[in-house]
Design a protein around this nucleic acid. Sequence first.
DNA 1: CGGCATCCGTGACGATACTG
DNA 2: CAGTATCGTCACGGATGCCG
Lengths: 213, 213
Amino acid sequence: MSPRRSYDQYCPAARALDALGDRWTLLIVRELLAGPRRYTDLHADLPGVSTDVLASRLRDMERDGLTTRRRLPPPGAAYVYELTERGSDLLPVLQALGEWGAPALEERRPTDAVRAHWFALPLLRCLEEAAVGEGVIQVRLDEGEFHVRVGDAAEGRAVYGDGPAPEGSDARISLDAETCTALSRGALRLRDAVRDGRIDVTGEGTLAKALRG
Amino acid sequence: MSPRRSYDQYCPAARALDALGDRWTLLIVRELLAGPRRYTDLHADLPGVSTDVLASRLRDMERDGLTTRRRLPPPGAAYVYELTERGSDLLPVLQALGEWGAPALEERRPTDAVRAHWFALPLLRCLEEAAVGEGVIQVRLDEGEFHVRVGDAAEGRAVYGDGPAPEGSDARISLDAETCTALSRGALRLRDAVRDGRIDVTGEGTLAKALRG
DNA sequence: CGGCATCCGTGACGATACTG
DNA sequence: CAGTATCGTCACGGATGCCG
């Protein structure tokens, strides 16, 4: 079951690792930060995880208060997993991890899987730093689409999600994964990427105008 | 050897977990954030880690650029392990983990080990938030002593360390682990703890005066 | 004595097959 | 679709031994 193998240390970081240290756990959190997911979706976006391990992690995470399992209303009645508030509070952890790991994206190995929404967190950081304003930005990569909510002072939940934003978007940008990587590594600034045509911005609102510089 | 078991995902967080996801790795980083340590010291402050796993982790971490192994000059010639700059960059990760895990410190199990410097990071956050000024504070708990450097705008390396500060301290405080926990959980404010006598402050500098309120 | 390497039992993990 | 069952392999934890 759960991390019966506790570190048994009276230390906040060790306590966190008791709940998060198992393989795949934090990556499942990363997936669910993009919104509720079904078991099969999780399995598809976590290449390499075996079915039993995924099921075991989801059980442990629910037991530890990180996730809940909810049955979708018909039609399409299925179970979806989503983060609790406690689980959503892990956003800073994923951000810190991603920031530290960004330099390691320099090399792109042929065996590496790619999903569009994996770039949501790094890109969100760039957009926040650029202070382009407030609103929802729809992002299109070759690998797929996602959306991010920038400038939300509430610092509330669901700052980004997979696919198009249900409530619509204030601006749309299109770029490739390489540009995304360069932005997240700090090797490229948002302004320069837009100026060089590596980011295509569509939309007419103030947010789109701000993105164009 | 090293995480031969990569997640094989082109994602910054996954790349970070490739290097950090193995058991004990992040706790070794936590230890080394308090300063260089010898193998035996690490083994003593990480109860439960087996000798071969510790040696293996230290080798992997050195290979991944997180740590270096240096021979101390005689007398007392021994090897010490210390973080590289890349390794020190993990401070935000440990901070985020610690902040998230702090609520789990409510229950203190009898099997839990305790070390004084494990409270350094949480306490550092409290002191930074209280904005008491700038300088080095020596902290004494029943479990041991450590020191923290507050208000250092440089945000540089070595914001805290085990034992007394080599360069001396501007103020000294004495408190118990329970008070430390309450502070890190946000259940107790620094001002109130000082006022209630749960923190004893000694020293005459501006930093000590600021701590007294 | 500090710094590991070796051996061994157990449990976690990964892949495949199978079921409601 | 959403898992459970089975199995081989590897990583982990504990103990011991070696070597400077």
